[in-house]
Write a protein that binds this DNA or RNA. Structure first.
Lengths: 233, 233
DNA sequence: GCATGATGCGAACACCGTTCGCAAGGTGGT
DNA sequence: ACCACCTTGCGAACGGTGTTCGCATCATGC
């Protein structure tokens, strides 16, 4: 699935080992696999090199450093998002759909959102997503300044929520210590002294509902409600 | 270097240097100083130990590890926020004031928000802030569920914005490479092909205004507008 | 005086990102 | 055919990280 393009001279008959040719695409693919399986922290020059059957120095021939590697991984991930077309009749629907789609794709790759939060968005995929957001907002008739900072705030909210959500999920095979820690946090808030924290104690059941409350969409709807009132200018 | 003769009692009284006693508070204070001056990444077991005139192993007698140390630093920072009292006549004012106060305190300590984003909020200070948020919301008469996830979304937004803002500020004395990189990002978006990114190109001036646009408060107002419509239930 | 527990800390371990320098392989010019 | 050259692979190492081990040293209770 990687080598979709033409490969004229690739007849590398490695009879001993089917080595994946050590190209940038292969390196990014291996790094993405590590992210999916064990999280961003598991991506190490050495772990990537090991998975490719080589040493860490070899990777630097195709990538300037770890930062660029992770950004390439993020770009490949964001290329998965399917952007909805703008609808002159309804801007909320496409906007919510796109936001949830970006979140879904990010969460489908573990805590990759950490990479998105560690630097400004660069690359074709982020630009494509921003363009789609602007298309929806501008088609709906929002003023230019509102469009400008709405895409900024929306992107921040989506990536922050994706990171937050990924962090409080056990890292797949992770030592489940994360889950135990979260239970400890809940215990902490539940046992606060009622005299100094009356409201927190009063709401202790509402604060830690483990149910399927979609807090992301709720916050998003709030945001969009406010946005709707900025429609006229 | 080695004293051949017996150096009998090794005068422990450090008259030459007023060592700060090596307590947990002193360690946290030194770490916070490092954060303020050079950012969270500059906090190293060794750098903290050096500033205290000792070795890295000594720190582990007062702190279980680096994670706990940074959380203690964060807790000390958040203790600085001044929480406004709830006002039955006006809930927006105190809410905005508190949100901006938390952001101000976080940004006053470089990229300390990175610590807040890396784990659930624990400690007295976060609990105190959450209590204040809940007090404002409950006094205003919001339903319990709304209060519960409003404080959740609000906290996420504030810390995410603080981290984002801190990251795109040159780390004080930092090598200004951050600023150059941001200019490069702006250049990237400005030179996107107009045929595939028409809206982005059309809004290129609005998207990268360097002026004092308070995007934080704008997004916050949006959020609160939406919240207002959930007042009745 | 002496056992005991807490504290300080030098040394080391296992990692990490990154660089250096060299070997191998293909390519083009002569 | 030869050689110069450039790209690619990679073993080895450097400096830095968080953390642990084991041993001194100290304060205290008995």
């Amino acid at each position: 699935m990687i080598n979709s393009g033409a490969e004229p001279p690739a007849r590398r008959r490695r009879s001993t080992r089917p080595k994946p040719a050590l190209t940038q695409q292969a390196i990014v693919a291996v790094a993405l696999d590590l992210v999916d399986r064990a999280g961003v922290d598991a991506v190490t020059m050495r772990s990537v090199a090991d998975a490719l059957g080589t040493g860490p120095a070899s990777i630097y021939r195709h990538v300037t450093g770890k930062d660029e590697l992770l950004e390439l991984v993020l770009d490949r991930v964001l290329a998965e998002v399917a952007v909805p077309p703008p609808d002159p009749e309804d801007w909320r629907g496409p906007l919510i759909a796109l936001a949830r789609e970006v979140r879904r794709v990010l969460l489908a790759h573990n805590d990759i959102a950490a990479v998105a939060m560690s630097g400004p968005p660069v690359g074709d995929s982020p630009a494509h997503i921003a363009e789609a957001l602007l298309a929806i907002l501008r088609t709906a008739g929002f003023p230019d300044e509102v469009c400008a900072w709405a895409v900024d705030r929306l992107s921040l909210y989506v990536t922050a929520d994706a990171l937050d959500t990924a962090r409080q999920r056990a890292p797949h095979d992770g030592p489940e210590a994360v889950q135990r820690r979260w239970a400890a946090v809940a215990q902490y808030y539940r046992h606060l002294p009622a005299d100094r924290f009356p409201h927190t104690v009063a709401l202790r059941d509402a604060l830690f509902v483990a149910g399927p409350v979609d807090r992301f969409t709720l916050g998003l709807e709030l945001f969009l409600d406010g946005l709707a009132s900025r429609r006229g200018g």
